[in-house]
């Protein structure tokens, strides 16, 4: 991983040894949100508009997975030549939510299975401006 790379989107995750997605949590009903929200809680029975910023669980269980065999349209910036990458939907137990993300480089769908323990990691993806690319969260099977 290139240390100098900047996050692909500001405020979506922490960096460092134990990176985590940054979400928000309603201070009244406890509902989590990713990405973070401002404004109003979307629980129909909650009238709260105050949120605290929280780090979401770094590990979860694989709910489903797929891959991208074709280069996605902009604003995705693909490496040339294009290499397919896997995509994971991971269930976070504490937050009771499913979060999407690419799967760490070098891991294909044939290595994945629902229920697998997955961990959040940071890797770089190409960027249109920055030569070193940009940091993005990915899911990786727990070793």
């Amino acid at each position: 991983m290139t240390q100098a790379a900047k996050p692909v989107i500001e405020g979506f995750f922490t960096t460092g040894d134990k990176p985590a997605l940054l979400g928000s949590r309603c201070v009244k009903c406890g509902t989590f949100y990713f990405p973070s929200v401002e404004g109003f809680c979307r629980n129909p029975d909650c009238d709260c508009s105050q949120f605290e910023s929280v780090e979401l669980s770094r590990t979860g269980k694989l709910w489903s997975f797929t891959n991208a065999c074709y280069k996605p349209p902009e604003p995705y910036v693909a490496q040339e030549p294009f290499e397919p990458y896997a995509i994971a939907a991971v269930e976070l137990e504490k937050e009771k939510m499913i979060v999407l993300g690419q799967v760490a480089e070098g891991i294909g769908v044939e290595q994945l299975k629902a229920g697998l323990a997955m961990e959040l990691v940071l890797e770089t993806i190409p960027d249109a401006v920055e030569a070193e690319g940009k940091l993005v969260w990915k899911w990786k099977p727990v070793a």
Binding site: P35, W63, T66, P72, P75, A89
Partner: peptide, 29 residues
């Protein structure tokens, strides 16, 4: 970055991704 549609494309999540996730879920479950 405030538009969820822009964000998911930026990180490589396209339309077929969602249908494929549902399909794979059927295979797994």
């Amino acid at each position: 970055p405030d538009d969820p549609d822009w964000v998911r494309f930026r990180v490589g999540i396209t339309n077929p991704t969602y249908f494929a996730l549902y399909a794979r879920r059927r295979m797994e479950v």
